[in-house]
Amino acid sequence: MGRLRRTAAAGRPPDDGLTVTIQRGDPGARTGFRVATFTPMTVLDVLLAVQREHDPSIGFRFSCRVGMCGTCGVRVNGRSVLACQTPVPENGEPVAIAPMAGFPVVRDLIVDTTPFWDEWRRVTPYVVPAEDAAEPARIAPDSPERRAIDPSLDCVQCGVCFSSCGIAGGSRTFLGPAALNRALVLVNDSRDTATQERLDLVSGPDGVDRCHYIYGCSSACPKGLDPAASIRRLRRGR
């Protein structure tokens, strides 16, 4: 792998190169780059190539590189994605990378996701168990409870849905897709005892009624979850 990268860096600009534009925070910082492509190549690979071959000072964040940590959220050609889960276009179209919308920018592509976590925190995201729960509950995998919960698990709290929602990133508070999805899981979880508090919150002024049916969350979720459906179900269920 190192060999591939080195030839590409040393040689003349290859025909299958990719033009990348990166939104930078520092005035005067270089924004246009051309990197050699390989297959498979993700946007994260593009960022790493830019960092290693062109500009080591570029700021971006990543950790696990396989879609589990949820820290490499950026905007690619206008829309929020996880960089590690987004393949570069095969037709050589230029790629524009910008920080995720809806969050304050810290530096270059790094954003401060505090607004997301503030909302997440509000739904009491942890289970509030009954006092006497000592043994794991016996819950059949095909029970209605699990059928309601299972499709909504595996959220990685990357904030991509928050950033793709037309409402959550705005100035008025809205719990947002991820927090509401979490609320739905806990509302359905028979081990939890804080159901009513959560239902009161989600049916309140910052809850499900602020959803405007844009479906940005569901179409952007890198884990294939459907927070919009969770919001609908919370509406029906309350």
């Binding site: 206008g78 829309r79 929020s80 994605v81 950033s163």
Partner: peptide, 28 residues
């Protein structure tokens, strides 16, 4: 500022190319 803004070209591309992460462009 909130969600990246209107991308007319992205909408058209999504309609033509059916790229999966642009599913919500129309709704947006």
């Amino acid at each position: 500022r909130i969600d990246g803004g209107p991308h007319l070209l992205a909408v058209l591309r999504a309609r033509l190319g059916r790229s999966p992460y642009d599913l919500a462009e129309g709704n947006r």
